[in-house]
Design a protein around this nucleic acid. Structure first.
Lengths: 219, 219
DNA sequence: TATTATTTTTAGCTATGTCTAAATTTATTT
DNA sequence: AAATAAATTTAGACATAGCTAAAAATAATA
């Protein structure tokens, strides 16, 4: 059983490994976790002892397969809880990180899969980051935006490209949220706007600018 | 800010104070928390220093007003999370305690009230224990069962009196769950059975025995 | 009431996880 | 290549929260 601190270090190393390749520096971890290099050294040695990381003095850390598996579990929990907080409890995506940071450490062999089912197996969190499945398989970040769709196409909304509150307010007003199902009814060459049905309801109009800023999952 | 252990001790003292009156023994707390008397002494002294409990050596502890307020916050969190786990995630009421025991320690000034709203302000948890409101006001355990209702009366389901799996299975089959709205349509003198509408759906028949074992909140 | 039993506290130890400061290694620059 | 700078590790400290064993206080019993 891993401690909160061990899980945090694993997750941190996992994230840093995705940004740069090669082993991860003690200092980078310390900065990211807002702790001190000396403390990181201790934890990293502990993770190595447990077979979760490979560590060479002065050279940096990497996760082992086992360590990455554990890191992905934490990432999965964090992102699923974020979906819950935004989709179900009505938080904004910029408010949920600290709470998810705590919820990701809840220990239970069944909880997270039940939550996943409850949320209907979301593939992305409210920031657009992919959610690992129960086996630790993880997709890449979304690249498709609404404006590549043609009339007749359908999709689900993943997240906004930029999280300016102006855009969020607009989306909220037209009842587009995380996971909304959209159907493109029409496209108008004149101004590049779209007519779109939201969750099989009434059709609304979206400007090019809006369409360019909504990440989607094409169906 | 309280630690997990401090919160656990406060909650424990709160619960024991409701069972017996007078100050609470160190030993009773230790037994309840599955720890040792010496450890409890330490924590209790700490709580006293923080103004959360009044403590006299060898005489036992009581919560101060401040301490009881904090205890009630933890109880509120625990029970609301239990409702979430049962009502939303599909756990049985005998499976949720350990998970709620962890969730109750999540720190956030907004989370629990949003959860309360999401769950539509339940008054009782799945074990029938009352949930303190945001101000710490708490009702007493339910005493009313379905069999006191007359045709035309309506109520919401609080919980089952005994949690035998037979009864739970039956209730599940007829789609009666925590928070279901029931309307008594008819009562049959012959066998004491009831005709009841569940959530404004179709009418079903409940035997006297079932009716005697469902705690309700009369509307 | 004196004695024994029980409860509670104190004292001292341990483990975890953090820190600072000093020592060491690695990297950079002249 | 030597000197300096930066990064990393080690050593030693501290706080929290738990424990055991011994001491002290209280309760129960002969």
């Amino acid at each position: 059983m891993l401690t909160h601190s061990e899980e945090n270090h694993l997750k941190c190393i996992y994230h840093l490994s995705n940004k740069s390749n090669g082993a991860i520096n003690t200092n980078a971890i310390a900065k990211s976790l807002e702790t001190k290099a000396a403390s990181v050294t201790d934890m990293v040695q502990k993770l190595a002892t447990k077979g979760l990381a490979s560590y060479l003095k002065y050279k940096g850390v990497r996760l082992t397969t086992k360590g990455e598996k554990e890191a992905l579990k934490v990432v999965r929990k964090h992102r699923l809880w974020e979906v819950f907080l935004v989709k179900e409890l009505g938080y904004n995506w910029d408010q949920v990180h600290d709470i998810a940071e705590q919820l990701e450490h809840i220990k239970s062999s069944t909880l997270i899969d039940k939550l996943d089912t409850f949320l209907e197996y979301p593939k992305f969190d409210p920031h657009g980051d992919p959610i690992p499945d129960a086996n630790g398989v993880i997709a890449s970040k979304p690249t498709t935006t609404l404006n590549i769709l043609k009339p007749g196409d359908t999709c689900t909304v993943i997240c906004a490209k930029d999280s300016s509150s102006d855009l969020l307010l607009f989306l909220d007003k037209v009842h587009i949220s995380l996971g909304s199902k959209l159907e493109v009814i029409d496209y108008f060459e004149f101004d590049g706007s779209y007519s779109v049905k939201v969750d099989n309801g009434s059709a609304i109009t979206l400007s090019t600018k809006v369409a360019e800023n909504i990440f989607i999952d094409k169906l």
